[in-house]
Design a binder for these strands. Structure first.
Lengths: 180, 180, 180, 180
DNA sequence: TTTT
DNA sequence: TTTT
């Protein structure tokens, strides 16, 4: 997982809608969130307060996606840490379009924050651990040996299926299942 | 304000106590916060969940300190962005002691988050300096106008006194007023 | 400048091209950068190393834009801190297009890093506004004149005492004082 | 690895000395770094430039520690991402002492940056992956005991399939594959 | 103790 | 289009 560069996004905002959850052929969860952050300032001419809201498209993978689907609702406040990714696609007219999203994958962080409309108050922070490229490796986490058994798979869900499934999902069916 | 290096801390946590507010001779506010962040994990041997709480000493200056004093309470959840700073001091026995704090000054960010015990739900994000007054400008950039006159002082409080006061406080009475 | 939410991007990457600099009618500088970050990983099936590069559109305002134009070149490595912003525009066919950019404005941070193709090694970190030590400078913000018209130029380089003083230091003596 | 709160430190700075590397009984590497970040500003009274350097104690675990030991030198510039941790200890007089460190563990990030005195220019970013299961371990680092004795070696280099495989890739072919 |  |  060596990389040249840092590509990090940190958002604290509220969901504009309930999360949209879908699954890859391999059972990996993917959650799409629309997150609002807003800024207010006093207009220098009118002296009135103005506000601008920025909407962020967030795509969450794996266990975090499941948690998002279960606990986040329209209005929920959430902390998210991910990376920027731009994907190209064609609309119905065959026109090239580009969409930039915040990807919260196995390296990302999600923390539910209190006070959202639909959210549970308080909230836990989940970190998927390990990195996107390591999927294959995570697969075996806790499978043998003593150490850390119960490590990843427990965090990630049931019977060490979760991460692996997801991984397969990503590598095998990525093109078909995920629209970016 | 050129600098070599980046020194940034980002915390999301809860106050262990009400903020302690004090003022410099020049009226600048200083807030001391004790912030808890905690981590949970499953012990690999026992399989039990374990938890560790880390306590952070946070020192906030200026307008943000005033806001902290007014709106944050024991239990409040808050987002903070500041920098690390270690100061040396002597205890009563003349022993050297070092304390590392997270400094949230004019470059820092504070955002109250919903759901804290004492906190107001929801919460606004305050950034001490500059900034958002200029957002309108960015949109208009190049359009001019007299915009943002009164910029900083408006952000910082009344009659452009705030930041200046604070500034004086820091430069003139720093040694006397602030114990680090 | 209260806001609900945090919208923060941190990038460390290399410029794909020389910065493109332009100026507003009021003399405010704007720099457009194309920044690459890349990830490498070992493919779990083939065992081969794979790499994916992400390109980021970065727009820098004000004094930082001037510094970028002067010191950054194709290949330079840079640390950037800004916010996400998506703008809508129409192409020649009148089709709606959306572009997401990383905005490095008066709240942003830029630090040149050593080792880039075109960059000088070493490098200083510039933060557009103030910092704790700059209190005195901020002091005068908005106090007189048409300051800050034209977006950033006044905050950052105009005739004021405050930030400008500091800025003058940078803009006037940059070549002499700063070794990169 | 659920947690309440975010505890994140981001540093870009230079090493004041060569890294100090040690190993746990289980072969896990631990690197201690002393990292400088500095700020400059123009004194508002004297008009002179002033500078303040902050020194950060950084403790790196696991594979990243090995890489630090191999590639970082006094003067090297590095990007680090970790968490704050304060530990209590007694000096020879039995006095309680507290030391706050930046912990770069399996959730941390390290990226070597170009231009350092001892560093090779360029540099790759390493992310250890995986997570908080290791927190308990960090407490024991170097002391051994049973838990995570060896710190990360199990996660990162022991007999497991998962992460270790990946790690092997890096440790075995590092010199050949990675050009820094 | 670094770096500029 | 960068970098390694």
């Amino acid at each position: 997982m060596a990389s040249r560069g840092i590509n990090k996004v940190i958002l604290v905002g509220n969901l504009g809608n309930d999360p949209e959850i879908r699954y890859t052929a391999n059972g990996g969860a993917i959650a799409n969130l629309s997150i609002a952050t807003s800024e207010q300032w006093k207009d220098r001419n009118s002296g009135e307060m103005r506000e601008k809201t920025e909407w962020h498209r967030v795509v969450i993978f794996g266990k975090l996606a499941e948690i998002a689907g279960e606990y986040l609702r329209k209005g929920s406040q959430v902390y998210l840490e991910g990376k920027l990714q731009t994907r190209k696609w064609q609309d119905q007219q065959g026109q090239d379009k580009y969409t930039t999203e915040v990807i919260v994958d196995i390296n990302g962080v999600m923390q539910m924050l209190g006070g959202g409309a639909g959210g549970r108050s308080g909230g836990d922070n989940y970190q998927q651990q390990s990195s996107q490229q390591n999927y294959g490796q995570q697969q075996n986490y806790g499978q043998q040996g003593q150490q850390n058994q119960g490590g990843f798979n427990q965090n990630q869900g049931g019977g060490q299926q979760s991460a692996p499934q997801q991984d397969s999902g990503f590598s095998d069916n990525f093109d078909d299942d995920i629209p970016f």
